[in-house]
Simulated scan of single mutants.
Amino acid sequence: MCEIFCFNSNTPKQINKCLECFYNHSEEHPHGWGLATMQSNEFVINKEPIKATCSQHLKDILSHPIIGKNVFAHIRLATVGEIISPNCHPFIEADDNNRSWMLIHNGTIFDYPKLNEYKDKENGDTDSERILLYIIDKVNEFEKNKGGLSTIKERFNLLNQLIVDLSKNNKVNLMIYDGDLTYIHSNMRDSLYYLKNDEGFLVASTPLTDDEEWKPVELNKLFALIDGNIIFESEKHQNEFILTEEHEKAIEDFLKSINQVDNND
């Protein structure tokens, strides 16, 4: 599928070493890379539909210090959608109150018909982008009914409800940022880890340093981070995703179709 990464801290830190280690995993995730940083309260996003280790653009970026309080990265192994730039993570979209949302996803949506209506609205053709559009619609609906902006706790509660429902029969490892909160969710064992230290909060699909303090992200819970600390934590749901032979076959068939297109080109 994919690998995901985020860094959350109360002060800007340089994280080039972690990013270099993360992007070196792209041999097994060759279908694109992405990087999102916050600068002057705005997202700066770079992404390409090529293997990270083959990208001169990424090498140029990493040759300079990457310093920030909120940094997100992604390497893609496609299971839904073409190998094109609009399908590379992170995805970014604004809600009706002009709040920018960013999402990266590791997983596949096998069964969630509510996302189908977004196929004609997204820029690419991934299930991951549809998740973001769906969440934003629900935030817009909530704030319209409220008649004003949501609080961070209201947004956390809303996203928790949406993600619990979305995670039934689907792999939903997510990192989302709404300008205030960084949301973290995993529902598959041994697929997301975190390290909390003096530098901040690191979360990645696999440990990125030799530090023995890396721990698995607690399964089936939504967490919200601000300034390197967990401020909200949901109750545990029961929608653990277990990869079956049927899931594996669906993924293999899609990867074969990609390889056939590449060979025809």
Score class of each variant (00 low, 15 high):
residue 159 L to K: 06
residue 95 D to V: 03
residue 24 N to S: 12
residue 123 N to T: 08
residue 178 D to E: 09
residue 236 K to W: 02
residue 189 R to A: 04
residue 108 T to L: 13
residue 155 R to G: 08
residue 145 N to L: 15
residue 15 I to G: 05
residue 223 F to G: 04
residue 43 F to N: 10
residue 72 F to T: 00
residue 15 I to F: 03
residue 71 V to L: 04
residue 258 I to H: 01
residue 42 E to A: 07
residue 16 N to H: 04
residue 174 L to N: 11
residue 169 N to W: 03
residue 123 N to Y: 02
residue 128 S to Q: 15
residue 230 I to V: 14
residue 172 V to Q: 06
residue 38 M to R: 09
residue 58 L to H: 04
residue 182 T to P: 00
residue 79 T to D: 05
residue 229 N to F: 05
residue 147 G to R: 03
residue 70 N to S: 08
residue 254 F to I: 01
residue 179 G to W: 02
residue 28 E to M: 08
residue 243 L to F: 06
residue 161 Q to N: 13
residue 16 N to F: 02
residue 116 N to K: 11
residue 204 A to G: 13
residue 240 E to P: 12
residue 108 T to E: 14
residue 75 I to Q: 09
residue 83 I to A: 07
residue 133 L to R: 10
residue 100 S to Y: 14
residue 104 I to T: 11
residue 262 D to N: 15
residue 163 I to Y: 10
residue 8 N to H: 06
residue 140 N to R: 12
residue 171 K to R: 13
residue 214 W to M: 03
residue 169 N to V: 03
residue 108 T to C: 12
residue 249 K to L: 04
residue 96 D to P: 14
residue 26 S to N: 00
residue 129 E to Q: 15
residue 113 P to W: 01
residue 124 G to L: 10
residue 123 N to K: 09
residue 91 F to C: 15
residue 229 N to A: 08
residue 86 P to N: 11
residue 244 T to D: 12
residue 38 M to D: 07
residue 256 K to S: 07
residue 46 N to V: 02
residue 81 G to W: 06
residue 79 T to W: 01
residue 131 I to V: 01
residue 256 K to R: 06
residue 187 N to Y: 07
residue 153 K to W: 05
residue 168 K to L: 06
residue 149 L to V: 03
residue 237 H to F: 12
residue 116 N to G: 04
residue 54 C to K: 06
residue 248 E to L: 00
residue 123 N to M: 07
residue 238 Q to G: 00
residue 227 D to C: 05
residue 263 N to Y: 05
residue 66 I to Y: 08
residue 208 L to Q: 13
residue 183 Y to N: 09
residue 30 P to Y: 05
residue 119 K to W: 08
residue 259 N to I: 01
residue 102 M to I: 02
residue 26 S to R: 00
residue 78 A to E: 11
residue 91 F to S: 15
residue 158 L to K: 01
residue 177 Y to R: 07
residue 185 H to K: 10
residue 130 R to G: 15
residue 36 A to D: 09
residue 94 A to T: 03
residue 216 P to S: 09
residue 102 M to V: 02
residue 250 A to E: 01
residue 70 N to I: 13
residue 102 M to A: 09
residue 138 K to M: 10
residue 15 I to A: 03
residue 260 Q to E: 15
residue 60 D to K: 11
residue 110 F to V: 07
residue 253 D to H: 01
residue 55 S to V: 03
residue 110 F to C: 14
residue 210 D to S: 13
residue 265 D to F: 15
residue 236 K to M: 10
residue 59 K to R: 13
residue 40 S to I: 10
residue 137 D to G: 10
residue 10 N to W: 02
residue 145 N to H: 15
residue 120 D to R: 13
residue 165 D to G: 08
residue 103 L to M: 11
residue 132 L to C: 07
residue 248 E to P: 08
residue 104 I to E: 11
residue 248 E to R: 08
